[in-house]
């Protein structure tokens, strides 16, 4: 049976993990490669790097990180942030990324998702969607959640699936950073409309939140950052908890 995936996410700025992580056992908890190895050891199912570097000068730094991670780790790695062209995607894949996350560039030109999935295959194209509640529905935002688009999130996700996205990384802007749990209504609504996997993101504060996202929210995978980075829980603890609650995970 297919298991639900637990995906730690690392925000990387100019080659360093943002805010750092608090793994006492690591020599350099700001080094993305070192942290990636620790997560692999803990049993993470995949890893996501989100490059939040503002300047494009540092793109090569990211490629180096991806390369080193691919050398050390044998788990699937997704890289998002600043992916704007087929050439960006090709470089990341050649560096060793398994999937790339596309966000703002998809909004600017939705056909980009179609071109990318035709060229590299749907399996490596993840469309990242930042959604914010707007009345009865949700609106998508770009530029790391700063720019409103006027686009309905549910329609948008459906359109991305049609254009060839292999997966949706769905972040609730309302919940992100609150540690109060995922936006379950958003997850449910998107999952009802889509037949590609959906990764839940934004708002995890405890293990029960992961459980809710995977059960009530029907997510196929859960992405979390702070609960793992700050050593509150290990990936293994999260899996033990979920397994006890009847969720199938790889142990």
């Amino acid at each position: 049976m297919l298991t639900k995936r637990i995906i730690p996410c690392l925000d990387v700025d100019a080659g360093r993990v943002v805010k750092g992580t608090k793994f006492l056992n690591l020599v350099d908890a700001g080094d993305p490669v070192v942290v990636a190895e620790e997560y692999e050891r803990q049993g993470a199912d995949e890893l996501t790097f989100l490059d939040i570097t503002a300047s494009s000068d540092n793109r090569n730094t990211l490629l180096e990180i991806v390369e080193k991670t691919a050398e050390k780790c044998m788990m699937p790695v997704t890289v998002g942030g600043g992916v704007r062209s087929l050439e960006d995607i090709r470089r990341l894949l050649m560096a060793g990324a398994d999937k790339v996350g596309i966000n703002t560039a998809a909004v600017h030109r939705p056909e980009f998702v179609e071109e990318a999935s035709q060229k590299f295959g749907s399996q490596c194209i993840v469309v990242a969607v930042d959604a914010k509640r707007a009345g009865d529905s949700w609106e998508i935002f770009t530029h790391g959640g700063r720019k409103a688009t006027g686009l309905n999130a549910l329609d948008w996700c459906e359109k991305m699936e049609k254009l060839g996205a292999g997966e949706i990384l769905l972040t609730s802007m309302d919940q992100d950073g609150t540690q109060e749990g995922y936006d379950l209504a958003l997850l449910q609504s998107v999952n009802e409309r889509l037949s590609i996997p959906v990764i839940a993101s934004g708002g995890v504060g405890n293990l029960e939140h992961l459980h809710e996202g995977l059960t009530t929210g029907h997510a196929d995978a859960v992405l979390a950052a702070s609960i793992f980075h700050f050593g509150k829980y290990s990936v293994q603890q999260a899996k033990d908890y979920l397994s006890k609650r009847g969720v199938l995970v790889r142990k």
Binding site: L2, T3, D45, Q123, S195, I196, P197, D220, R250
Partner: peptide
């Protein structure tokens, strides 16, 4: 089902093979 089939799933051994020999049961 969600398609693509994406993630960790276990193997159901169908016959003895050199390729898969020695794997724990239901390996992911």
């Amino acid at each position: 089902l969600k398609v693509p089939h994406m993630g960790w799933n276990n193997l159901l051994i169908a016959k003895e093979s050199r390729l898969l020999q020695g794997l724990p049961e239901a390996s992911y």
